[in-house]
């Protein structure tokens, strides 16, 4: 670990200025991810800007039925209206990490947590994300955790967040603030695919701050996470589904996958299989098959293809039964 400065601004503006003034500065929120990266020598910021005192820890319901979740709301958030309106989000949060970590972890930090790819987390390996241009040791390495979709020759890592997957299914918008003021980034554009610049993971600029997440009113949603142990493990594959059914017919569907790409992976083909059809086993089965469309398995992760099919089916079936 390298020594660093620590600052604790009292307003969003002050925090943005602190980030702007020091190109080596990084935000620290709950610290549950960043501290381990500092410890392991993966990150070495010159300054940590603590965003715990910016008043970003509120949940506010809007007149139109949408909700703004402050970036510093904890992943342990327990709000009955949120649970009713967005069950998929609350299930995703509850399926993540452990109660202790969820008590510390924030929404902003959750979206911006770094990949769990071992080759990124262990500095003794080459990694284009950690050290641009050094190569990707995962390409010839253990492929079990790697991406099915959207990978590139420079990076095959997947995004680990459960919450972000649910946010994609729920069509969230990320509110950010920077030196040029505030802007809104649709969640699907927030995370980006690696291409040749895997070090760039999101559309957030270095001196911008996530301040809130906005959720529009949403149809019934559900989250299903499949993993190696019952709890306290990252997803092998997960799916968030939000489906609106009326008169026995699916009016709209959003399906997103976790554990398969550098960003929550939206399954448009699977959604198309559902819309306009009855919400029943045959169309659900077709949606499961369609969810694997475009998958490019790599040595070691072939099992994920079948898993995607089954996880999507199960998530939709459970939503239908709920």
């Amino acid at each position: 670990m390298r020594p660093f400065h620590y600052s604790r601004p009292g307003s969003v503006g002050e925090a943005v200025r602190a980030l702007g003034a020091d190109p080596g500065a990084e935000v620290i929120a709950g610290g549950t991810d960043l501290v381990t990266l500092l410890r392991d020598g993966v990150r070495a910021p010159s300054q940590l800007v603590d965003v715990n005192r910016l008043g970003l820890d509120r949940l506010s319901w809007q007149p139109n039925g949408s909700v703004h979740i402050g970036a510093m709301c904890r992943n342990a958030v327990d709000d009955s209206r949120l649970r009713r309106a967005y069950p998929g989000l609350v299930q995703a949060l509850r399926s993540g990490a452990s109660p202790q970590i969820r008590n510390r972890a924030s929404f902003g930090g959750n979206l911006l947590q770094r990949t769990r790819c071992a080759y990124f987390r262990l500095p003794e390996f080459d990694c284009n994300k950690r050290n641009p241009g050094s190569g990707c040791a995962a390409l010839n390495g253990d492929g079990a955790q790697t991406a099915l979709f959207g990978a590139s020759p420079s990076c095959v890592a997947v995004h680990p967040s459960d919450c972000a997957v649910a946010l994609v299914a729920l069509n969230a918008v990320v509110h950010v603030e920077g030196p040029a003021g505030a802007r809104r980034i649709p969640i699907e554009e927030f995370h980006v695919l690696p291409g040749e610049t895997p070090q760039r993971e999101t559309a957030l600029r270095r001196d911008e701050l996530v301040v809130a997440i906005e959720l529009p009113p949403a149809p019934p949603s559900h989250y299903l996470k499949f993993r190696d142990r019952t709890s306290f493990a990252f997803a092998l594959v997960s799916a968030a589904v939000a489906v609106e059914v009326s008169g026995g017919t699916v009016r709209s569907a959003r399906i997103a996958l976790g554990g398969v790409a550098a960003k929550p992976w939206r399954c448009l083909a699977a959604e198309r299989e559902l819309v306009g059809k009855p919400f029943t086993a045959p169309s659900i089965a077709k949606a499961g098959d369609a969810a694997t469309e475009g998958a490019k398995p790599r040595p070691g992760n072939e099992y994920k293809v079948e898993l995607v099919r089954r996880v999507v089916r199960r998530a939709l079936t459970e939503l239908g039964n709920a």
Partner: peptide
């Protein structure tokens, strides 16, 4: 039987998950 394995990088032999986050032992719910 079900989860413990310190996976190794097939090229260098280095341990891939020398940490309790990734080296899975059963949790209560298991």
């Amino acid at each position: 039987a079900l989860m413990e394995e310190l996976r190794q990088d097939p090229v260098s032999g280095r341990a891939l998950a020398p940490a309790l986050t990734d080296y899975h032992v059963p949790v209560n719910a298991d």
